[in-house]
Amino acid sequence: MGPGQPAQTLQRALTTAGVRAGDGVVVPSYGTCEVVEAVRQTGAMPVFVDIDADSYCVDPAAVQAAVTHRTAAIVAVHQFGHRADMARLGQLAERRGLLLVAHEGEQSTSVETAMRRANAAYLSQRLTDVITPRVRPGAAHTFLQYVVRVPGNGRPDRDAFARTLRARGVRCRIPVQTPVHRMPPFRRDIWLPETERAADECLALPVEAGLTRRELHRVASVCNGLGGLLQPA
């Protein structure tokens, strides 16, 4: 599936369900702009809501607070491979007569997913100086990305941690540089505290299926070796 196809599929789903110009569609700001762009292509208005601090998916309580008479749909993004709370979102959508659409990430085989989960479990058992991913009880996580939080003073410490990892040969990336609601084409004058905090603290470490145990051990070793460099304020 090409990079533009999930957004096109989402746009078709919204349009087919009758979402029209002027309708409100609840979306997360923490993630890529393709979901928001798909909503705008229908003529609807993206309504940004905050995320759950553990799953990085939309917080059902925040969604409920954002629903108005103009709301037509909720888009739940399964973030980094962690499934959104579809049970609670589904109950809300049913009560309010809203469309609920799940936006899937990239697809992978069951073997790849099993290997990523095993790699994630290995890292979570060995990492000591970052906050490892949390999985909501009963939820599924395929670990398309292994996202940790770097403790300390937010973005400066996270960025310094990332630079040092790269200098020592460990690949890493910042999963969301800027929340969508702060990007110029989509800017809103709102404050989403968990979204802002995640954008400042999160870092994705290698977890792909092809990693060897030796490579994973090095990732954990290098990360743990930086614990004395960056301490919480």
Rank of each mutant, 00 (worst) to 15 (best):
M1K: 05
P3H: 05
P3R: 03
P3F: 03
G4A: 02
P6R: 02
A7Y: 04
T9V: 14
T9I: 14
A13M: 03
L14E: 01
T16E: 00
V19Q: 07
R20T: 04
G22H: 00
G22A: 09
V27L: 08
V27S: 00
V35Y: 07
V35C: 13
E37L: 12
A38V: 03
G43L: 06
V47A: 00
S55F: 11
V58S: 02
A62G: 08
A65I: 10
A66Q: 00
V67P: 05
H69T: 15
T71G: 04
A73L: 12
V75M: 13
Q79D: 03
L92V: 00
R95I: 13
R95H: 14
R96E: 01
G97N: 15
L98P: 00
V101K: 12
A102H: 09
Q107E: 15
T109A: 03
A114V: 11
M115I: 01
R117T: 12
A120E: 12
A120W: 05
A121D: 11
R126L: 08
T128L: 09
D129I: 10
T132F: 07
T132K: 15
P133H: 12
V135G: 04
Q145A: 03
Y146W: 06
V148W: 10
R155H: 13
D157M: 13
D159V: 06
A160F: 07
F161L: 07
A162K: 01
R163M: 08
L165D: 15
R168V: 00
R168A: 08
G169K: 08
V170K: 09
R171T: 15
P175V: 10
P175L: 02
Q177T: 12
T178S: 13
H181P: 13
M183H: 00
M183L: 14
P184S: 14
E194F: 09
C202Y: 05
P206R: 02
A209T: 12
A209N: 03
G210A: 14
R213A: 14
R214G: 08
H217I: 09
R218I: 05
V219H: 06
L229D: 15
